[in-house]
Design a binder for these strands. Structure first.
Lengths: 243, 243
DNA sequence: CGAGACGTTGAGTCCGCTCAACGCCCGTGG
DNA sequence: CCACGGGCGTTGAGCGGACTCAACGTCTCG
């Protein structure tokens, strides 16, 4: 393997838990590290907490000091309303960064809970700030990350604003598909790490409605449902259901 | 008037269109400028476009190059779905920054349209980036701003997720009140720059429902409605309706 | 002062919610 | 091995809140 095509070389096994595929690796790894050094470098990253299903990564109202990059697994973030109900504001997957909404006042705005066995990198925000001081170009990366998060939220606002139940579920699956497809070789099969109730909570629907719409999409030969695994039979038609 | 209490001195006339009250002034003004120099400095800011009601500040899918800080007036941002309907994702007021969601791929994700006569400061993003390079502490300010925007979006997701029509309208008014109260001396009176239809679109309700809920809140002696001006008669009870 | 945009109110409909029953899967313990 | 139980998912019946459609009232601005 030559080093001539450094930026586009093929990585033999797609290990998405490695730093190579992490969208925030420029934030936690030393400046100027190249791809070949990554495997060495990532072994010295310090905090790599493992979480089981149901474990809290951080709590609402707790003091913010670190961001968390998801290496493997999946996470839900949710707020708790004053009458005690939880409202899910997002599902998060490997390569994504948690805790950005806590920067503004250094208090976590939501709870983050693992939906399955999950590994994250804890990145001290002080470290990030001092690294941005030394390497100003990191600011751009960081701003882009936050901007992307804003865009995702706005997309969700558009879904919740005026879409029907069927459209919401279709959008949910389609977006999941788009986010997953860098992660699975089997691109047209999604494994849902969350319950129907959690999907409904997120989409502003009851769990029964989620269930009904999934079977509806199945009867239309658009998907095949097997418990939590969803096979996308006709992605184009799924996409057309989103509008 | 002594200058001894520099950080809490009284500013005679609260001119919220001045840079003194702008949340992003550290981004567009030279480093280290103190409050007393502001009035001089802000006269040399270059781009200060004026917009009339209905004017576009930027268009969805157009190339991103600047952020826009609102100096006076108000703005709605909205996306257009594939079937041509608009979905409002936010209302924006003086001191707030528009265009943050376009940083990630340099294309505007939404339209921004003035709801009334509006003045903004156009701030070249290249300028911001190079200033962050020179003054690293600006990075923190910028990250805080984006984080705050994320938090606002998440709050909205919680509202749209499971609240009833009455709760949505109450939350809308209460949030508006909180954002307004730094801007108006008459703190318990809100002037709405948008139509019922735009409120409904934003809240995921029909315009008729918005109208009905407003009269409902009026009949409960919580607010008094006079066209677009809403007098908050009982803020505590309004707040309790939000949950 | 007239036209059009905006807002209110009423009547009827429908989508999604609630309540309820049942089935499936799986781990646990007798 | 089966029984049991709990979590999760599906399906049905009936209800209700928000939407749609429609008419009318009111404000704004040329």
């Amino acid at each position: 393997m030559t080093a001539s095509k450094a930026s586009s070389r093929v990585i033999p096994i797609r290990d998405f838990s490695s730093c190579s595929y992490c969208s925030v690796r420029r934030l936690c790894l030393p400046h100027g590290v190249n791809d070949d050094d990554l495997q060495t470098v990532e072994k010295i990253v310090e905090h790599r907490p493992h979480y089981d299903k149901g474990d809290h990564i951080f709590h609402q109202s707790s003091k913010f000091s670190s961001l968390f990059a998801i290496k493997s697994g999946s996470v839900k973030t949710f707020g708790v309303t004053r009458d005690g109900k939880e409202q899910i504001t997002g599902f998060h997957f490997p390569g994504e960064l948690l805790g950005l909404d806590a920067i503004c006042n250094e208090v976590h705005n939501c709870n983050a809970v693992a939906l399955e066995q999950t590994v994250v990198c804890e990145i001290s925000y002080d470290n990030i700030e001092s690294m941005v001081g030394e390497i100003p170009s990191l600011h751009s990366d960081f701003a882009r990350l936050m901007s992307k998060e804003l865009r995702r939220d706005d997309e969700m606002l558009m879904i919740l604003g005026n879409m029907s139940a069927e459209q919401r579920v279709s959008c949910f699956l389609y977006n999941l598909h788009r986010r997953m497809k860098r992660q699975d070789d089997v691109q047209d099969e999604i494994h849902l790490p969350m319950t129907r109730e959690e999907i409904g909570n997120y989409l502003g629907l009851s769990l029964e409605t989620v269930s009904r719409r999934l079977t509806g999409l199945q009867q239309a030969d658009i998907i095949t449902v097997h418990n939590r695994s969803i096979k996308l039979q006709d992605i184009e038609r799924l996409r057309s259901h989103c509008m």
